[in-house]
């Protein structure tokens, strides 16, 4: 198979040949590929940082410092978005610890969630989260797993209107409640939706990703590695040499490149406890993104494994 006929999407954002592809723009820092948040045009690097399990380390100072090193490497490598939730144990204070250590980089894009069924407690929960992070305000507040979304959203929109938030979103994962997600996307003026998407879990390709493009909703992708399972599953299989042209040098990068090459995706948020892994993951947002044909080939390859 030759490469010549393959329309490759260049990381520089120029030389884009596929009209349906959203154009990744250059991120200021470190040359990571980025896509714009549709409603504002603000650029986000295609790879962010998740914190579920990995940053829940309690008051273990050794592990807190390890996480701080991951956060430092994330910003050094040009990252912006960190995603967390009050559900994630001590992850919020761990983020605060890591950010304080590097002096709260301006590039930080803070993505938090509100997760409480009694919505009268929403404001207090958001305030507690803010104190843990130590930021003046959150960039993005998402209704976690659609919990009481119909009551939380009006409160979040009014926080946004008064400048206490910049963006509003909703989340789900592992294919749950997609009908409801679509309903919210269609009827509410949300800026972000967060869903699970990876090379084996592609249900969102059918309706949610096209809807996001139509409604100009930014898409955050969670569980890019199915919590590491995909990497463990594939790591013994050879990485096909035909992905080398994209710059992917590991399974993690293969999997991430598949995700972020979908034009509706704004940012994937792999979680890690390791500095080498955070660097490797950010690297996936460099080089070249696979085009449609290569994406099909990637899918076929892993499905045959």
């Amino acid at each position: 198979m030759t490469i010549t006929r393959r329309a490759v999407v260049r990381g520089l954002g120029i030389g884009m040949s596929m009209p349906f592809m959203a154009r990744p723009a250059m991120s200021q820092a470190a040359g990571l590929m980025a896509r714009s948040i549709p409603k504002t045009g603000e650029a986000l690097p295609l790879v962010g940082l998740g914190t579920w399990i990995t940053f829940n380390v309690g008051d273990d100072s050794v592990l807190m410092d390890e996480c701080a090193a991951v956060i430092a490497a994330f910003f050094e490598g040009g990252g912006r978005m960190i995603d967390c939730s009050p559900m994630y144990g001590s992850s919020q204070p761990t983020i605060g610890h890591g950010l304080a250590r590097i002096g709260y980089p301006e590039r930080l894009f803070s993505a938090e969630k509100v997760w409480i069924s009694d919505t009268s407690g929403g404001a207090a929960q958001i305030e507690a989260s803010r104190e843990h992070w130590g930021v003046a305000r959150f960039d993005l507040m998402q209704v976690h797993n659609l919990v009481s979304w119909d009551e939380h959203l009006p409160a979040l929109f009014s926080m946004k209107a008064s400048g206490r938030l910049r963006y509003v979103g909703i989340t789900t994962s592992e294919g749950r409640r997609h009908r409801e997600i679509e309903q919210v996307m269609a009827s509410e003026p949300i800026d972000f939706v967060q869903i699970t998407y990876n090379i084996l879990d592609r249900a969102v390709e059918e309706r949610i990703l096209p809807l996001a493009q139509e409604k100009r909703v930014a898409v955050i992708v969670n569980r890019p590695f199915r919590q590491g399972d995909l990497i463990r599953r594939f790591e013994d299989a050879p990485l096909p040499d035909w992905v080398a042209e994209t710059g992917a040098r590991s399974w993690a990068q293969f999997l991430l490149k598949f995700i972020i090459s979908h034009p509706a995706v704004t940012c994937a948020i792999p979680a890690t406890t390791r500095v080498d892994h955070v660097r490797e993951n950010l690297e996936a947002a460099r080089g070249i993104l696979p085009d449609e044909k290569l994406r099909k080939r990637m899918t076929a390859y892993v499905e045959a494994l």
Binding site: I53, N56, V57, D60, R176
Partner: peptide, 22 residues
Amino acid sequence: AEWATYTLADFLMFSPRVYFRL
């Protein structure tokens, strides 16, 4: 059903390493 999509591991919110170090 929604509950059927959950596995045991979905409820674990920390790694074994963190737990046993604790």
